[in-house]
Design a protein around this nucleic acid. Structure first.
Lengths: 127, 127, 127, 127
DNA sequence: GTGGTCTAGACCACG
DNA sequence: GTGGTCTAGACCACA
């Protein structure tokens, strides 16, 4: 399994296990991780990103209790079969809402024109 | 002085003093707070938002050490006279960069079409 | 960890957290604290000097925001790996500049002969 | 009277009235201000340095209560006639002691060679 | 175990 | 009136 599916920023304000959890949720909702698909093991992820295995384990555990992942004996963690498989646009959009609202709030405080903001977003998207 | 220039979300993950600090930085860069302008006193802000004065003081103190604010003895805090006075669009855009990158990353993980994202942003902007 | 690396003067005009911050900066620049080296924990320092943990935490936090220290999650604070590792004589001398200027200014106001001043400094150094 | 006998640093950590008080004490001990000599008025000093008259008044008042100055009706403040007139080297050296000790302590923390320190002091003296 | 945040309240220093 | 400092103590988050 590829442990590099995750992007970790060790010094970010958001705790590592939350970064993992958030990415898991979005990648499952977006369909990049399909139901039944195996996840990289705790050790792989921890080793690859040089973080504490307990941190990865915690993220997986929380994902399990949220119904995102399932524990398969002798196999490891897999994407839950009943996990919303590539939820509709509307549902996925809802997951983006917090980030979108925060962006707009900050842009307002900076008194930036909406056009510049949209342009920058598009540029980042394509980059 | 209007203590309501700040917006506080007590339950957000971001600590209160950081919310204040971030808003200060953006409002100064955006020109909503002009160099030399007086800020609401620590006690006013604390009273208005029902938070501890020390929390506000902490934000003001950090803003001072970042060069955003200046302490005028016996007067209070004012926007630093050498603070980026309505910095150029480019500089202000830079302050939005982290939020923009985060949004794009999440949108990618959700495999959302860029059009939907831009539409939602525009809608939030106008709302 | 040795919590006694710091010297605290509770009755000095300089606030405790500033004393700690200043000493940290000089000991790192002087090489007494090497990059990567672990610092005594907040609780150790607080207990050893009978001061409030928050006071120590404040010093550590400021040192972090100045780039002197780094926070290692679950480990504690360590000297920043990119912190001036035994900066050159010149750079270290610069940190002494304020104290040196203040001394000279006072000596001038006292109209003391330079020789006496140098002699006293040497004597204190050796003492 | 020349209001520029004082050197004021409005943003220094040391409060303004203390800066004034310290300079007064040293200049009297050093003989730059002779017993009976008139001091610049509160208004002159305040105006010249753009500080609050109350601050100057406070320094003068404290100096008076320390026996450094005397209030002459209709004249203003003058250096006390019984103020140690150009105290002996030893007494004046004592007034320099705090600054000297602080310098040495910082130099030690910086692990600077004594020679460099003495050289810098001499250089500042002559500069 | 580590540091971080916040509170309530006291007291000080400055103007 | 202004901000600054410190305390005692609680609670949280992370590893």
């Amino acid at each position: 399994m590829d442990a590099s599916i995750f992007t970790i920023q060790p010094n970010a304000a958001e705790p590592i296990y939350r970064q993992l959890l958030g990415q898991l949720g979005r990648m499952i909702a977006g369909g990049q991780l399909a139901p039944g698909e195996r996840l990289p093991s705790v050790r792989e992820v921890a080793g690859h990103h040089a973080i504490n295995p307990m941190t990865v384990s915690r993220a997986y555990g929380l994902a399990e209790s949220e119904g995102l992942l399932e524990r398969r004996r002798g196999v490891g963690m897999v994407v839950a079969t009943q996990a919303a498989p590539a939820a509709g646009d509307q549902a996925r959009m809802a997951l983006l809402e917090p980030a979108a609202r925060e962006l707009v709030r900050q842009a307002r405080e900076l008194e930036l024109p909406i056009e510049s903001v949209l342009k920058r977003i598009t540029s980042l998207w394509e980059g």
